[in-house]
Amino acid sequence: MPRITTNDGVSLHYYDEGEGRPVLLVSGYGAPADDWALQWAPLRAAGYRVLSLDRRWAGQSDRPAWGQRMSRHGKDIDDLLTALDLREVLAVGQSMGANTIWAYVSLCGTDRLAGIATIDQSPKMVNTPDWPYGFYGLTDENLGTFFTTPEAFATGHGRPWPDPVELDAAIKAAGGLGAASLITPDTYPLLLDHSRQDWRDVVARAEVPVLITAGAQSQFWPAEHAAATAALNPKATSTVFEGAGHTAHVDQPDAVNERLLAFADSVRTGS
C-alpha cells in the first residue's frame, strides 16, 4: 500500500499504477481516491502513470486533529510530488480537489506541473457583484454559518445525485474499494476555509496549460463559472459536460475521460 509521510507527520495513502507521464487525480471534500476509478483504466491504457491521492481525512489516509485548512492540503500535494520526485505532472482535481491544486500552485508554483485540469469547481465560492458564479445562496453575509448544516448542499438546482448503491457498484467494478465519502464535523473547519478562498489570482498566474470544466447541471453553481474562470488566463480553455452534475467524472465518465485524454495529449505534445 503506497504511502508518504507529510512534513507534519501525517501518513497519506495513494494509488500509483501505469507507466508514462504522471497524472495526479485529487478528489473532492471527503471523497476517497477510489472516486476516480472510472478514469484509471482509460488513462493507463493511453500510456499514463496514474496516481490518486487520499487526502488527509479521506479514504485510507490518516485523520489527524490538525491541518483542516486549504493551505495544508496544498502542502500535502507538494509533499507527495517531492517524495516521489514527480515532474511534468498533469494535476486533475474535482470539487475541493481542484482548489487543493490551486492551493499547491499558490505555495509552490508550477515547476513540477505540465498542466492543470479542474472538474466542476468555482475558484471563488462566495457570490459577489463581480463573481456571480459561486455556490448557490452563499454570500458574504451568511458565510460564517452557511455550511453548518447538511441542508446547505440541497440547493434545489441541477440534476439528481447519482444513486449511491449504483455508484458504489460501478466504482468497485472498475477496481476501486467503493465511493463512500467521509464527511464529519471534524472536517467542517476545512469546508469553511475552502468556502472563504478566492483562487482567481492564482488561476490567472498559472504558467502551464489549464482546462476548466463544469457540469451543465451542477447542483452547486452555474456552469458559466468554467468560461469565466478560463477567461482569467490566456493558457486556459473551458468545457461544459452536458447531462452532468457536480460529479461529472462519474455522471458522464466517457465524456470526461475523452476530454481529459485530449487535454493530456495536447499537453504532452505541446499542441
Rank of each mutant, 00 (worst) to 15 (best):
R21H: 05
V203F: 07
D16Q: 08
I116W: 03
L80N: 08
N99K: 06
G74S: 09
D198L: 05
S52I: 04
M125E: 09
G178Q: 13
V240E: 12
T155D: 09
V50R: 03
V267H: 06
L143N: 02
F220P: 01
G20C: 06
F263Q: 03
P234I: 00
R196Y: 03
N7T: 14
A45Y: 01
R56D: 09
A173I: 03
D34R: 02
D168K: 09
G137C: 11
I119K: 02
V165A: 14
S271T: 15
E88S: 14
A264D: 06
T229L: 09
D111N: 13
A179R: 04
R87H: 14
Y136T: 07
Q60E: 15
L24G: 02
D198E: 07
V92D: 05
G178L: 11
R63D: 02
R3T: 15
Q68M: 14
Q68I: 00
H225Q: 14
T5R: 15
T187M: 15
A103G: 03
Y188I: 15
P42I: 09
H194V: 00
A244T: 09
M125Q: 15
L113K: 04
F135L: 11
T139G: 05
E17V: 08
P162R: 06
Q94E: 10
P253V: 01
D76R: 06
D265K: 15
P132M: 11
F135R: 08
G109L: 04
Q197I: 01
T145V: 14
P129C: 11
W40S: 07
W57I: 00
D201N: 12
W66L: 04
T5E: 15
G28C: 07
